[in-house]
């Protein structure tokens, strides 16, 4: 039984088929990259997997349980956490409180608010925000907000983590830091499905890559297979890259 099984997933917005018959499996402990041109349905797929959108058709099975149609607020306690392409911090709360929400409401939640605060402090340290704990999220920079969002999702102790363009908007140095963070998360045996545009980063991190175009899966394989795949080069990577 695969850890996460996506079968024939479809989502139409009126006449537009944003995601069309997408099927793939994710094994436990893997990092799966999801790439494709703008509008190919990557974020829509993530939204379907986390209950933010209801699919038109298809099945999603997580640890043997069908999770389609469940309210989105039930996904995190089940072990699925996500980040957002445009970060969504709780602006008026402190960095510590941001992370505590994940600790208190996530899977295997903290026993008390005090325990949650202590564990959240550790989570902040792990992403390098230890000294920002008492700052309001609205006073953090973009990179710090991305780190915060990651810490918040990790605090919920997910088994499956969905990252939506964590590296978008970061400079090369920050993107390298983000890569290191993801490597570090892999150590803790969390399965990751990541949407990303930086091909170098996604090839370095992913075990396997799924390529979408116009809502359909056009390729799936190891990073080496994907960067040599002529169809992928045509629609996404471009000749210069190959």
């Amino acid at each position: 039984m695969p850890f996460l099984q996506v079968e024939g997933l479809c989502k139409s917005f009126g006449g537009l088929k944003a995601v069309n018959n997408v099927t793939f499996d994710v094994a436990e402990g893997q990092i799966i990259g999801l790439i494709g041109p703008n509008g190919s349905g990557k974020t829509t797929t993530l939204n379907l997997l986390t209950g933010f959108l209801k699919p038109t058709a298809g099945a999603v099975t997580f640890k043997g349980e069908n999770i389609i149609g469940r309210p989105r607020s039930q996904m995190c306690p089940k072990g699925i956490a996500r980040t957002f392409q445009i970060v969504k911090p709780f602006l008026g709360l402190t960095a510590l409180e941001n992370v505590m929400v994940g600790k208190v409401y996530g899977r295997d939640s903290a026993k008390s608010l005090k325990a949650a605060a202590e564990e959240s402090r550790e989570a902040l340290t792990r992403v390098g925000l230890a000294d920002k704990a008492r700052m309001l999220a609205k006073d953090l920079t973009l990179m710090q907000r991305k780190r915060l969002e990651l810490a918040r999702a990790l605090a919920a102790k997910p088994q499956l983590l969905l990252l939506d363009e964590l590296m978008a908007g970061l400079n090369p140095k920050e993107a390298d830091d983000a890569c290191a963070l993801i490597q570090q998360i892999r150590q803790s045996k969390i399965t990751i499905l990541m949407v990303e545009h930086i091909v170098k980063a996604i090839c370095a991190l992913s075990d396997r890559i799924v390529v979408l175009n116009m809502g359909e899966k056009i390729a799936e394989g190891t990073p080496d297979e994907i960067i040599c795949n002529p169809q992928v080069i045509d629609v996404y990577l471009g000749r210069a890259h190959a």
Binding site: S73, A81, K88, P89, G102, A153, A156
Partner: peptide, 10 residues
């Protein structure tokens, strides 16, 4: 503060 994020955290 942020309804979507709150729901994504349970």
């Amino acid at each position: 503060e942020e309804e979507d994020a709150a729901e994504s955290l349970g």
